Structure formats: structure tokens, C-alpha cells
Simulated assay, not measured.
Amino acid sequence: MTSIGSDDRAWLRALPADGGREPLFGRAGHRVHPALRLSDLVQGRPPGVTGSQWSSASRASFDLVICAADTGRAIVAVQMGPVASAGSAQQRVERLTDAVSAAAGLPVLRIGSPTLRAAEHGRRLVEYVIDARAYVAGGAGATVDGDDPAPVSFRDILGRLPDGRTGPVNDLGALSRAAVVDAYVAGRVADPIVRGLHVRWADGTAQGWSWVQVRPDACLVERVSVTEHRFSCGINAAQLAEDLATVAVGERLRTNAGTDLLPCAELTAQIVALSRRRDELVGGFAFDHLCAD
């Protein structure tokens, strides 16, 4: 299968499948490499980048890199982990790395989460993105005119879920949703339903929230951000962020569900505060029904 993405970016280095660059795995015309530095992916300092900027950014490491199997050039570099705090040294490094990556034509995908890590969750995410982009590239997600039925997005393809029901088989949070039902039956949580919301900020960053009521007065809450720099995941990034937040809820439920809970009243207050910032959101805020007590 022909890989997805451009392979004409002159500043991107071709990575051989051997010679110390063995891929972690391959999928549908792609090779996925672990733990590569920016300097491994870019051949020399791009135009417009100073020596100091290149010296700092070239040492930055990405968790996973999706490459085209035919050319060996990177399609996107993926980073997954906690969001850098505002004004921190880590945030400055990330911004510099993104700027240098842009100068070199290297797309970057950042997944911000206090719970999700590349070692445990990165492969499933990368496989999902490759499959979603292939689905769109094949025309299945294209807009149609006339009386033809509306296309089904990759996320909304229906099939058999782990609990036997029919639902969206490409919901990354499906296993977590089933686990919450099991936890409810076992008396470990107070409600069997995983709730959530998703938004996209004007700067392009998508954010998803997901939560489950562990006690009558307290919830386990996870938030995930998805930032696509010169890249598309093949599905709505905000919906992907919410699904990944649900994955994180399942991870927390499995390991430490009873700790770091948020009072339900505080969660509602935070949702209300988010709704009041709707002018900063692309498409506004579609979850006013969650603002009620």
C-alpha cells in the first residue's frame, strides 16, 4: 500500500530500515521508529534557523516517528506526555522544537496527558492514526453532494463492541467504557457511564475531558490535549482528545481509581468556567447541558 503523506520535504532525512534505525513495527506502508532526535530526522540546519536554535532543538527527542516505508522519510513525529507548564523551560524547548520542525517541513503531533505514556499507549495511537488517515485517503471520509448518504467518519463506523453491543468500533475508549460498567457491577464506582466533552481552542489545540463518578460526590477526571502541527490525524482532533481522555480514565480506574478525585461540584464549576470562554473556542461550546448541577 502506498504510504500517506508527502515525501518531497528536502530537509528530511531518509531513515533506512536497518543500520541502527530498526523500526518498532510496520503498518500499511509505514514504518514506526521509537525515540529519535530531531537531528536524526533532519539533514542539516534548515534555512532561517540560527546556529543556537539548531543546537538546542536538534537534541530534542520524539517518542515515536511514523515514516513512509518507501522513502524512509518522516511523515510525523509524535510526542506523548504531560503538558508543559506555562512559562517553563520545557515549554520553551517545545516551542523552539516546533519552530525548527516547521522550518524543516517536519509535521509534529503532541499528545498532552498526565496519565498516557508512549511506552504503554503510543503504539495503539499510531496504528489508529495510520488507519484513520488511510480511510480518509481512500475517499471514505470525503464529502458527497446530491442525494447520496452522508459519509461515515472513521470514528463512527459501527460494529460489535467488547461488551456485545453495537457501536462505534473505532472509539479508542470502548474498552474503558466496558471496564467502567464492570467496575459499577462490582461496586467500585457509583455510575456506569463515562461522560465527556471536547473543544478546540483558537490556537488550534484540541482538548478532551472524560470522567466517571467514583463516589456520589466525587469523580475521576482526565484531560488530554491533541495538537496537530502541519498534520491531520484523519479524524476530528477534539473527538480524538476526548477518546484518549477516556483511555486515560480506564488506566486510572485500573491502577488508582480511589485517589486524586475531584468533587462533582468542582467539576461542574470547571465546565461552567469553560463554557464562559466559548468565544475563544472554534465552533463555540456544545456542552451546556453539562453545566447544570
Rank of each mutant, 00 (worst) to 15 (best):
Thr2Gln: 10
Ser3Pro: 13
Gly5Pro: 06
Ala10His: 14
Trp11Val: 03
Ala14Asn: 13
Gly20Pro: 06
Arg27Ser: 14
Gly29Met: 10
Leu36Tyr: 04
Leu41Trp: 11
Trp54Ser: 12
Ser58Asn: 10
Ala60Tyr: 13
Val65Asp: 01
Ile66Tyr: 02
Ile75Gln: 12
Gly87Cys: 10
Ala89His: 13
Gln90Val: 11
Asp98Arg: 11
Gly105His: 08
Leu106Lys: 06
Pro107Thr: 04
Pro107Ile: 01
Gly112Leu: 05
Pro114Ile: 05
Ala119Thr: 09
Glu120Lys: 15
Gly122Trp: 02
Arg123Phe: 09
Arg124Trp: 02
Val126Tyr: 00
Ala142Trp: 09
Asp147Pro: 00
Ser153Val: 00
Asp163Pro: 08
Gly167His: 00
Pro168Thr: 02
Asn170Leu: 00
Asp171Gln: 06
Asp171Glu: 04
Gly173Ser: 01
Gly173Glu: 03
Ala174Ile: 03
Tyr184Ile: 04
Tyr184Pro: 03
Tyr184Lys: 04
Val185Tyr: 02
Val194Trp: 00
Val194Asn: 00
Val194Cys: 07
Gly204Arg: 00
Thr205Leu: 07
Gln207Ile: 06
Gly208Leu: 02
Leu220Asn: 09
Val224Glu: 03
His229Phe: 06
Cys233Arg: 04
Cys233Val: 15
Gly234Asp: 04
Gly234Met: 08
Asn236Thr: 10
Ala238Gly: 14
Ala245Asn: 08
Ala245Trp: 05
Ala257Val: 13
Thr268Gln: 12
Ile271Cys: 09
Leu274Gln: 15
Arg277Met: 12
Val282His: 10
Phe285Glu: 07
Cys291Leu: 14
